[in-house]
Write a protein that binds this DNA or RNA. Sequence first.
DNA 1: CCCTAGTCGGGTAATTCGGGCC
DNA 2: CGTGTCCGAATTACCCGACTAG
Lengths: 70, 70
Amino acid sequence: MDGNNERLLTPGEVAALFRVDPKTVTRWAASGRITSIRTPGGHRRFRESEVRALLRGDSEAAPEGHPAAS
Amino acid sequence: MDGNNERLLTPGEVAALFRVDPKTVTRWAASGRITSIRTPGGHRRFRESEVRALLRGDSEAAPEGHPAAS
DNA sequence: CCCTAGTCGGGTAATTCGGGCC
DNA sequence: CGTGTCCGAATTACCCGACTAG
C-alpha cells in the first residue's frame, strides 16, 4: 500500500467546516492561503490535514506529512 | 518481458485518490483528459504515473516512460 | 462452473467554476 | 481587502440494470 492515505475534502465540506460559502474557500485557494488540488475537470480538492490545522487556529503553515508526536 | 513495469490503477483507485466518483474518472478518460487502457472486456485502467502527475498539479503529463533525472 | 466486487452505459439532480457587483 | 450573492456554464454525484474481473 502506498503511504499516500491523505484524505481530500470538497469545497462544500471545507465551507461547512469554516461556516463560510464555498466561494470563499475558493478565494482562499486562489490566494494561496490553502493548498488546493485540481481535478482534470477544474474542481478543487483540499487536504483534510491542512484544513484541520487551519481549523485549530494554527497560523503557522502545517508541515507536510504526519504530525509526529514529538 | 517488456520493461513495462508501470502499475495500472482501476477507476475506483483513481476515484479514491481524487475523492471523486469512479464514474467521473471514466468521464475523464472519455474526454481524453487521462490516458486509459481498455481491457478486452471494455473496462478501463489508468497509469499510476499519470494519475500521480495529475495529483501533483503537473500540467505537463508525462507521455510515457520513466521520469529519468534529466 | 459458480460467486462477490467492481465497472460499464445512459440519464438527471446537485455542486462547483468563473467573473462581476455590493 | 474580504465576504456574500447574482448569473450562466461546466463538472460532478447518484439512480438504474447488465456485464466483466479474478
